[in-house]
Amino acid sequence: MTRTLYLLCSAAPPVFDVAHVIENAQSRGWDVCLGLTPTAAHWVSESLDGLAALTGNPVRWQYKLPGEPDVWPAADAVLFAPVTFNSLNAWALGLTDRFVAGIAAEAIGKDIPVVAMPCTNAALAAHPRFDLSLAELRGAGVEVLHGEGGYTPGPPEEDTPAPFPWAVALDAVDRQGSPAAP
């Protein structure tokens, strides 16, 4: 039985590893649909056709027009990673002007398992809105992988952030999106 994973990515350095993440998710039995913020789509613009071929689904970063058919199958799970400070706060506040924030917000309302792994630096993570957003999303049932057991922010001056723990995120999705999951 194939399960469908919506992989949603913001513009943070780990987005450049997305092809490997897709392959890893596929090896775990997931059909992957890739959604990006507009900036993330710009960052990987030269790879969009290849990513669509890899997933077998169109890569999306914009809402469809009214009346257009939905081109993705229904999701069994959502992984929003890397999710930046901006995207995380917008999502927690219900600001859905960006496609990926809207998909993530609807997933909560549809009781689709959602896992999020923020990717930000320590200066932004120290902002009071960040902790409020983490608590808001956790309270809505989102498994947020931040800090120990997830991604730990590094200093803002760091040119190359610590390796992003994609395997941890995919393990969480596997647990959340398994047929036996609540």
Rank of each mutant, 00 (worst) to 15 (best):
E143Y: 13
G150N: 06
Q26H: 04
I103L: 10
S10T: 08
S27C: 13
V71A: 07
T84L: 04
L51I: 02
L170A: 05
L124H: 06
G154S: 07
L48W: 00
V115T: 02
A92G: 11
A181E: 02
V144K: 08
F80K: 01
L36T: 10
T152N: 06
L134F: 10
A11N: 10
V59E: 00
T2W: 00
L170H: 08
L36N: 09
H20F: 04
G102Q: 04
H42V: 14
L36D: 01
P13Q: 11
C33S: 10
L51T: 03
A162S: 12
P13T: 11
E157W: 12
T4E: 00
C119R: 15
T160H: 09
V100Q: 08
P153A: 00
L8S: 00
S45D: 15
N121G: 05
S133F: 06
P66F: 00
T55R: 05
R3W: 03
P118A: 12
T2R: 07
M1W: 10
P182I: 06
A77V: 09
G147K: 04
N89M: 06
G67L: 07
P66Y: 02
G109S: 02
G29L: 02
L48V: 01
P163S: 06
V21K: 04
A25L: 01
N24S: 15
S87T: 14
D70K: 12
F85L: 06
A90T: 14
A40M: 12
L79A: 06
A90V: 10
V83S: 12
P113Y: 01
A135K: 14
A116M: 03
L95K: 11
P14C: 05
V83R: 11
L65H: 15
A125E: 11
G29I: 01
G56E: 02
A75V: 01
H20I: 03
V18P: 08
E157S: 14
W61N: 09
C33Q: 04
A75G: 07
P128A: 04
P69I: 02
F80L: 09
L65A: 15
S47H: 10
A162D: 12
A53D: 12
W61Y: 10
A104Q: 03
P182D: 10
V100I: 12
A135W: 00
E136V: 15
A135D: 15
V142N: 07
V78H: 00
H127D: 07
E23M: 08
C119K: 15
G102I: 07
A169E: 08
S10K: 09
C9S: 14
A135Q: 13
A41K: 11
G102R: 03
E46T: 12
L137P: 13
P73A: 06
G141H: 01
I108L: 12
A107W: 00
P156Q: 09
D131A: 15
T4V: 09
M1I: 10
G50D: 09
A122P: 07
A172N: 01
A19N: 07
R138H: 08
A19Y: 01
E23C: 13
L132E: 13
M1T: 15
Y6S: 03
A75Q: 05
A125Q: 03
L137R: 09
V78W: 00
P66M: 03
W61R: 04
V15W: 03
M117F: 05
